[in-house]
């Protein structure tokens, strides 16, 4: 498992560096004296930007036929999937960690951040990242990486659709639920986490039956 995680990390390393650079640049927005809605958008983008590069890494593995080769090593198929999903979580964790820089810089520039409600940025960034990967990876595993970019865009669209669905459903039972509000954010995040778990199970099944 450690070796697989390391291999995933090496495959993503260059993209992680680029994402880190962009995310850190975005942090500088906090010095511009912007309001909390812009900060929320920055935080969401900082988390999401780390999952953007996943397609390139999967394409690299496919090109080198690593996907076939790893099955000849002393690991089980489900361990391969396990390592992939752990790598996804690590990417999102990195994005979340970088967003803390934004908070720190905001604190330095404004002195007080207690009054800022930044939950929308975190719930939006995390739910979008989690559900995008949850939809994208099993589809790519099943059908191959040839249409990786298109599938990524479709997954992002579906993830936004899911948030919209959560907002619609909440509006059926509650009054004045805002699309960017915390209720929709936490609801979408919960749904994304459930989708991620279901995606893992589906990916294990797809991989078990897939021929390489």
């Amino acid at each position: 498992m450690r070796g697989l995680l390391l291999n995933n990390y090496y495959s993503l390393q260059n993209n992680i560096k680029s994402s880190l650079g962009i995310a850190l640049l975005l942090s500088l927005v906090s010095f511009a004296g912007v309001d909390h809605s812009v900060l929320n958008a920055v935080i969401a983008a900082q988390i999401w930007i780390f999952v953007l590069s996943i397609g390139a890494s999967l394409q690299m593995d496919e090109a080198s036929k690593w996907n076939r080769f790893e099955l000849t090593m002393p690991i089980r198929r489900r361990t391969v999937i396990h390592a992939k999903y752990l790598s996804f979580l690590m990417l999102m964790l990195m994005g979340t960690a970088v967003s803390l820089v934004t908070l720190a810089l905001t604190y330095v520039s404004k002195g007080d951040i207690a009054h800022l409600n930044l939950s929308t940025g975190y719930t939006f960034g995390l739910s979008l990242s989690i559900s995008t990967l949850a939809i994208y990876y099993p589809v790519i595993l099943k059908f191959g990486v040839e249409k990786s970019e298109q599938m990524f865009m479709v997954s992002v669209g579906l993830s936004m659709g899911l948030r919209f669905l959560v907002w619609m459903l909440l509006n059926l039972y509650m009054d004045d639920v805002n699309f960017n509000g915390p209720e929709t954010g936490y609801g979408a995040l919960l749904l994304a986490v459930l989708l991620f778990a279901a995606s893992y199970v589906a990916a294990v099944r797809i991989h078990r039956n897939k021929e390489f």
């Binding site: 690299m60 090109a63 080769f69």
Partner: peptide, 14 residues
Amino acid sequence: IGVVLDSANFSAIL
């Protein structure tokens, strides 16, 4: 079991 396949096998950036 040691395996060498006809392709590169490993990620090109390694």
